[in-house]
Design a protein around this nucleic acid. Structure first.
Ligand code: MN
Ligand code: MN
Ligand code: ZN
Ligand code: ZN
Lengths: 148, 148
DNA sequence: ACTCCAGTTGCAATCGAGTCGCATCTGAGC
DNA sequence: GCTCAGATGCGACTCGATTGCAACTGGAGT
């Protein structure tokens, strides 16, 4: 019997097992950090947090694991408008994807779920006959406080 | 009498003049390349093309001019799903902004204009009380040919 | 429990996009 | 023409990300 479609979010390790991907000490640490993170992490933060769980984790392993997670569609990669340097941010892909807004005034990051966004993706798939694998809508501007 | 809103696209130099930004040999070359480019350019390509018009153009001037153009909202910066390295791509901002789709199979870049996208931005501005300055919707997936 | 090896890791070197300090140069207002 | 704020070229630099390689290890097979 298949699991319900709204699969429990946060079981990256389970995904690895299902797909026969080898589990290592280091990957366990990195996945745990990604699973429990409540905000967008860049590679450097991810490394530091993972090293608290397993001091042996190396920077290159973080990057290799991020690439693996991306390849399997388990995480999303974000720019967040390059509000802080040239690097990228990562977050676990949940059931529903969302829009990211970055305030150019105060640096705050906001998220927003929208049915219109889903409709737009549907339109792209239909009108352009394009099979969507990953989508990223990032908006820069000014939040309510910073606007007035 | 104001110009019609659908201003003639492609007059970056005119924008500079209007806003009292100094015009130089090098900027003239770079702006000309941006104006006449028909595809998304990365900084390296932009440099090479600009150097054909003015051999003295330096890499750092290209980056400084890109930053200037961004700051004035005259160009958009794109990742195009990092289909080719970590760099960014640039294009002149036209009247109507558009979605970018990158085919993970053949590397083709497609563009798409959608009223639903405009509606979505309107929703964000209204529901989140967020004043949008710049927006980027980038989609990765498979085009019609690569899907079958 | 032991073996085995493909896959993974740490490390250090390296790449490549983008930035910066500084001496020099230049555009455009007078 | 002068003048100088602002722009440029150059080289050094930062920093995110990648890679080659020898050593290590997970987990399948026995
Ligand atoms: Mn980017
Ligand atoms: Mn475009
Ligand atoms: Zn703000
Ligand atoms: Zn394709």
């Amino acid at each position: 019997m298949p699991l319900p479609q709204t699969e429990m979010p946060g079981r990256l390790q389970a995904h690895f097992a299902e797909r026969g991907i080898r589990m290592t000490q280091q990957r366990r640490a990195i996945l745990r950090v990604m699973e429990t993170a409540n905000k967008h992490l860049d590679a450097a933060h991810l490394l530091r947090k993972a090293q608290k769980l397993d001091a042996s984790v190396d920077r290159s392993t973080v990057y290799r694991t991020l690439k693996l997670l991306k390849r399997h569609g388990l995480i999303d990669e974000l720019d967040l408008m390059h509000i802080n340097g040239e690097g990228h941010y990562y977050e676990r892909k949940l059931n529903r994807d969302h829009i990211h807004m970055a305030c150019l005034g105060c640096g705050k990051i906001m998220e927003f779920v929208s049915d219109i966004f889903e409709k737009l993706k549907g339109q792209v798939e239909k009108d352009c006959r394009f099979r969507i694998v990953v989508s990223r809508l990032e908006i820069g501007g000014y939040c309510a406080e910073c606007s007035k």
